[in-house]
């Protein structure tokens, strides 16, 4: 079980959080073709290494935020607001 640093509540156990999948997805407009829409719906990154993902402190303050996590070591490299753009992989 991870320990995650909620930006508002501090370090808490993973069981207080909800995993929201890959972050920084861009919702395409209605006019995109089927292929692009399907990419948005169904295709996700699955890197060995740094993964940018969304979490929600569901059983706490309820806030959604982004984290950068190493999928090999599970080290959480950065926690940042949901509205921030994706960090460069180097600086993460």
């Amino acid at each position: 079980m991870f320990q995650i640093e909620c930006p508002y509540c501090g370090a808490r156990d993973e069981r207080e959080f909800h995993f929201g999948g890959e972050g920084h997805l861009v919702r395409p407009g209605e006019s995109v073709d089927d292929e692009s829409w399907a990419q948005y719906l169904y295709f996700r990154d699955n890197p060995k290494g740094v993964h940018f993902e969304q979490w929600c402190h569901r059983f706490g303050c309820g806030t959604w935020f982004n984290i950068a996590r190493d999928t090999v070591t599970h080290e959480i490299l950065r926690v940042y607001p949901i509205t921030d753009s994706r960090p460069e992989r180097k600086s993460a």
Binding site: C56, G62, W64, I82
Partner: peptide, 13 residues
């Protein structure tokens, strides 16, 4: 309720 919160916080910011 959680679903509406997610859309509000993550997409309709």
């Amino acid at each position: 309720y959680q679903w509406m919160e997610e859309w509000l916080q993550c997409e309709l910011v």
